[in-house]
C-alpha cells in the first residue's frame, strides 16, 4: 500500500515521471482480488441485467444473417486484443473492441460478442479474473457496445449519417471516448474497493488511457472503413444511399 501511495503522489507531479512510473497493473483486464465483494457483485448484477436485455433483443430483432458476422466480429476482436501496441512511457495498450462490435452488429448482438470474447479470455487463458468477469465485461464490453454505439450514432447523425465523414468522425469520437470511460469506470471500481485511493486511480488510469484510446480509435476506424467500403450493407446502420446495391430484390 505504501508503494501504491508513493507511486500515486509521484504520478501527480510530472507527466513524464508519471508515464515512467505508472504501474502496468492499472490496465483494464482486472484480475481476481482487485475488487471487493460489493463492487464485484454490483458489476455482476449490472452486467447480467444488460446481457438479459441483449438476449431478448437479439431473439426479437435479429436475422439469421447476423450469425456468421457475430462469429467473425468476435474472432477479430479476440485476435486484436492479443496485439498490445506500445504507447509512449513504456507501457502498452490493446483494442477493447466494444465500440467496433456495437457499430458492426448493434448494441445487442455486439454485447453478446463481447461477452464471448471475455469468457474465452478468462476461462481459457486466465486473462481477467473469473470473480470480476462481470466488471470486465461491463467496462471493456458494454460501455463500448452501448455508450460507444449510441455516441457514434449521435455524432454520425449530426455530421452526416450517410457520408463517410459522418461515419468516420462518429467512429473515432465514440471509440476514443469509450476507452476513456472504461478506464474511469475501472478506476472507480478500484477506488471503491479500497485497492487504490480513488484520486490516484482516476488520474493514473486517465493518464494512460487517453493515449491507449487513440489506438482504439485508429483500429476501429480502419475496421469500420473496410466494411463501409466493401460491404456497407452489413453494418447495423447501413448508409441509406448505397443500400440499393446489395439488395436488388428487396422492395423498399
Amino acid at each position: 500500500m505504501i508503494d501504491v501511495l508513493s507511486f500515486g503522489l509521484s504520478t501527480l507531479a510530472l507527466p513524464s515521471q508519471f508515464l515512467r512510473m505508472a504501474p502496468p497493473y492499472l490496465a483494464l483486464h482486472i484480475p481476481d482480488g482487485f475488487l471487493n465483494l460489493p463492487v464485484s457483485l454490483f458489476t455482476w448484477v449490472a452486467t447480467l441485467v444488460l446481457i438479459a436485455v441483449c438476449l431478448k433483443q437479439v431473439q426479437r430483432d435479429y436475422q439469421e444473417r447476423a450469425v456468421p458476422l457475430m462469429g467473425v466480429c468476435a474472432a477479430f476482436i479476440f485476435a486484436a486484443q492479443m496485439i498490445n501496441f506500445p504507447i509512449p512511457g513504456g507501457t502498452s495498450g490493446h483494442l477493447l473492441g466494444g465500440t467496433l462490435a456495437g457499430i458492426l452488429l448493434g448494441p445487442w448482438a455486439g454485447s453478446l460478442v463481447m461477452v464471448v470474447v471475455f469468457i474465452v479470455q478468462a476461462v481459457l487463458f486466465q486473462d481477467g479474473g473469473l470473480t470480476v468477469l462481470g466488471a470486465n465485461i461491463f467496462n471493456m464490453g458494454l460501455i463500448g457496445t452501448f455508450g460507444g454505439y449510441y455516441l457514434y450514432r449521435a455524432v454520425r447523425s449530426a455530421v452526416g449519417f450517410n457520408t463517410w465523414r459522418g461515419m468516420a468522425i462518429g467512429t473515432v469520437v465514440a471509440a476514443w471516448t469509450s476507452v476513456v470511460v472504461a478506464a474511469l469506470a475501472c478506476a472507480i471500481q478500484l477506488g471503491l474497493s479500497g485497492t487504490v485511493p480513488m484520486g490516484v486511480a482516476l488520474s493514473a488510469m486517465l493518464g494512460w488511457h487517453v493515449l491507449i484510446a487513440i489506438g482504439e480509435a485508429i483500429i476501429t476506424l480502419i475496421a469500420v472503413s473496410y466494411i463501409w467500403r466493401t460491404r456497407p450493407d452489413l453494418l447495423f446502420d447501413p448508409p441509406q444511399t448505397r443500400t440499393a446495391l446489395p439488395r436488388p430484390l428487396m422492395p423498399r
Partner: peptide, 23 residues
C-alpha cells in the same frame, strides 16, 4: 471465440433471413 460467438448467435437469433438485413 469464432465458434462460440457463432453458436451463441445460432442459439438466440430467431429471425429467418428472408431479407438481407441484420436486424
Amino acid at each position: 471465440t469464432f465458434g462460440l460467438a457463432w453458436g451463441a448467435g445460432k442459439l438466440f437469433v430467431k429471425g429467418r433471413s428472408s431479407d438481407t438485413t441484420l436486424s
